[in-house]
C-alpha cells in the first residue's frame, strides 16, 4: 500500500503533505507512547497516533517513518507544523478513531508491526 492509499482509506486531510504520496508503506504502527514507537516502530512505516505534539514528529524523524496520522481530528498546533516542516515529516489528520483507523488499514492489507519481527 502507498501513503496515498492509506490517506484515502483514512479519509485523511494533509496538514503537512508528503512530497511523494506514492511512497510505499512497509507497515503500520499505532501508539501514543513514543517510547513504544522508538522501541518497535520500523523504518518506512506509517504511525497512527493520538499524540499531536512535536515529540510525535521527532520520533517519526528519528525512526524514518513515512508519515504521521493524527486521529480523531485532534487540533494540530503551529509548533507541530513547524517541526514537521523542519524535519521533513508529512502529517495527516483523520476524523477516525484509532481503532477504526487501524481496523480499516488492516482490512485494506497494510501489515502491522509488533515487537520482534513484522507479521506477514
Amino acid at each position: 500500500m502507498t501513503l496515498a492509499g492509506a490517506v484515502e482509506v483514512l479519509k485523511a486531510q494533509a496538514v503537512v503533505p508528503a512530497d511523494d504520496e506514492q511512497a510505499p508503506l512497509s507497515g503500520c504502527f499505532a501508539a501514543d507512547l513514543m517510547s513504544d514507537v522508538l522501541a518497535f516502530g520500523r523504518e518506512g512505516s506509517l504511525l497512527i497516533t493520538g499524540l499531536a505534539t512535536d515529540q510525535a514528529i521527532r520520533t517519526a524523524a528519528i525512526k524514518h517513518l513515512v508519515a504521521v496520522v493524527i486521529i480523531e481530528g485532534k487540533p494540530v498546533h503551529s509548533d507541530l507544523v513547524e517541526t514537521a516542516c523542519e524535519e521533513n515529516v508529512p502529517v495527516y489528520q483523520t476524523p477516525l478513531s484509532k481503532y477504526e483507523a487501524c481496523g480499516l488499514l488492516m482490512q485494506a492489507g497494510l501489515r502491522p508491526y509488533r515487537k520482534g519481527t513484522a507479521t506477514d
Binding site: L33, M34, S35, D36, L38, A39, L51, Q55, T59
Partner: peptide
C-alpha cells in the same frame, strides 16, 4: 506522559 513519554521504557530502550 502527555508528551508520550514516561511509560518506564526509557532506560530499557537505551540499554537495548
Amino acid at each position: 506522559r502527555a508528551l508520550g513519554f514516561g511509560a518506564g521504557m526509557g532506560l530499557p530502550n537505551i540499554r537495548e
